[in-house]
Design a protein around this nucleic acid. Structure first.
Length: 424
RNA sequence: GGAGGGAUGGCCGAGUGGACGAAGGCAACGGUCUUGAAAACCGUAGUGGGCGCAAGCCCACCGGGGGUUCGAAUCCCUCUCCCUCCGCCA
């Protein structure tokens, strides 16, 4: 949610931001008009209320019955008008809120301007795509041959985009999760185990609603929404709170499954485990003072990179351009890992500073050290990492000519010391 | 799922239609006293919004939303959450 004052004081800033995001800037005028009408109404209704409050106090003091009746009669009309204006105001504010809720964050000035993902900028690359003495297989072939991924039974259970991990496949998934959580813990993050279903207000707070309603699963009878990312509970857990300044920055990490309908990607990436309706992810999240959020972004990016480096994988850092930036983000770096079997770079992490955008929606503030007015804080989120694509990278990069897969050293302690996955 | 009881400021807690933004206590902050501290005493204190250069004035907020009334913390409806008992259950 953007500060309404931006629309009053710097409307062109918002218009430019929307244009850079390839969106129609005309909503800005709608917001300004609604805001002006709102303020006019507020003034009128508050004047009337002040009048009514004064008169009511007087009525309370008036002893004479006839005098009293007269005053009450006079106030009845005022009260009716207030009622009517209040209703009008309520409706107006609801409309203003709902329009505001659909407007994305303003990109950081450092974000390159561009149309779509083709204009993203590769910031750096670590490692080189590995040369194989044989033709590297895609992970679905490796996984099926090893007997650790069972697509047919996943589909039998739940339909397309589902699969079963079995034996060393399931254990590898669990090892990756545990290793990542331990890594982030050592980087200073506090581990959180949140609910996987949350209220609508929680999904709104992080900005997934109302815009991405079609991509979310929710219970038909009750107010339960399946989390599409741990970012949702990690944002909403501090909803409506004022945090003490000295407790910032706060670093959190959480593992959750993520549930997405993928309506917008219908027909894309249906092969393998690249894009499922349910996938695991380990997330990092930071609550920071505004002046420290730039530094927090650097730290989070480095922490995410450490996972890929720790697994010995080749990756690159890509800065998203304005046209490809997520709804809530101000600035985002994607981490892409090389998958030799697929022959492509896979997005495994997205690290963003959203500024005070989510904090405004979720009403999360902090009280500066030494007192003073509560201020909105900044939040940052980053995957560290998405599990299926990390799994793809591990399987495809560590595959051997004989069909086995060598287990990255970092994960071996989590797998009883096993060094290689052989057909089972 | 059934029956009952609750939700008031940072915390505890009073308040069942009229000077209540809310008694009292604790905690906090400032001050007086003191060599210093404690105690005691005095004082200040919430959030959001509107108007204003500002001082300040006004409006709203007693779990959320709606209603009754000239006037609601107080009455009515509704939702959420918490507690107790019963039932069911991994």
């Amino acid at each position: 949610m953007l500060d309404i004052r931006l629309f009053r004081e710097q409307p062109d800033l918002v218009r430019t931001a929307l244009a850079n995001r390839q969106m129609d800037p005309s909503v800005v005028d709608e917001v300004i008009a609604l805001d002006e009408r709102r303020r006019t109404l507020v003034r009128r209704v508050e004047d009337l209320k002040a009048k009514r409050n004064a008169a009511s106090k007087e009525i309370g003091r008036t002893k004479d019955a006839e005098e009293r009746a007269k005053k009450i009669a006079a106030m009845r009309a005022v009260s009716d008008e207030i009622k009517q204006l209040d209703a009008e105001l309520r409706e107006l504010e609801a409309r203003l809120r709902s329009v505001l809720a659909t407007i994305p964050n303003i990109p950081d000035p450092r974000v390159p301007i561009g149309k779509d993902e083709n204009d993203n900028v590769v910031v750096k690359q670590v490692g080189e795509p590995q040369e194989f003495p044989f033709k590297p297989l895609p992970h679905w072939e490796i996984g099926t041959k090893l007997g650790i991924i069972d697509f047919e039974r996943g589909v039998k259970l739940s339909g397309t985009r589902f699969y079963i991990l079995k034996g060393m496949g399931a254990r590898l998934e669990r090892a990756l999760i545990a290793w990542m959580l331990d890594l982030h813990r050592s980087q200073g993050y506090t581990e959180i185990y949140p609910p996987f279903m949350v209220k609508e207000a929680a999904v709104f707070a992080s900005g997934q609603l109302p815009k991405f309603r079609d991509n979310l699963y929710h219970d038909a009878e009750e107010d339960f929404w399946w989390v599409p990312t741990a970012e949702v509970p990690l944002t909403a857990m501090h909803m409506d709170e004022i945090l003490e300044g000295e407790t910032l920055p706060r670093y959190y990490t959480a593992y959750t499954p993520c549930f997405r309908r993928e309506k917008m990607s219908a027909g894309r990436d249906v092969r393998g485990i690249k894009r499922g309706h349910q996938f695991d992810k380990v997330e990092m999240y930071i609550y920071s003072r505004p002046e420290e959020s730039d530094a927090a972004l650097e730290k989070m990016l480095a922490d995410a990179e450490a996972t890929l480096a720790g697994l010995g994988l080749t990756y690159r850092v890509v800065q998203l351009c304005t046209g490809d930036l997520g709804f809530a983000a101000r600035i985002t770096y994607d981490l892409e890992v090389w998958a030799p079997g697929l022959g492509e770079w896979l997005e495994v992490s997205s690290v963003s500073n959203v500024g005070d955008f989510q904090a405004r929606r979720a009403n999360i503030r902090y009280r500066p050290e030494g007192g003073g007015k509560p201020r909105f804080l900044h939040t940052l989120n980053g995957s560290g990492l998405g599990l299926p694509r990390t799994m793809i990278a591990v399987l495809e990069n560590y595959q051997q000519a004989d069909g086995s897969v060598v287990i990255p050293e970092a994960l071996r302690p989590y797998l009883g010391g096993a060094e290689v996955i052989k057909p089972q």
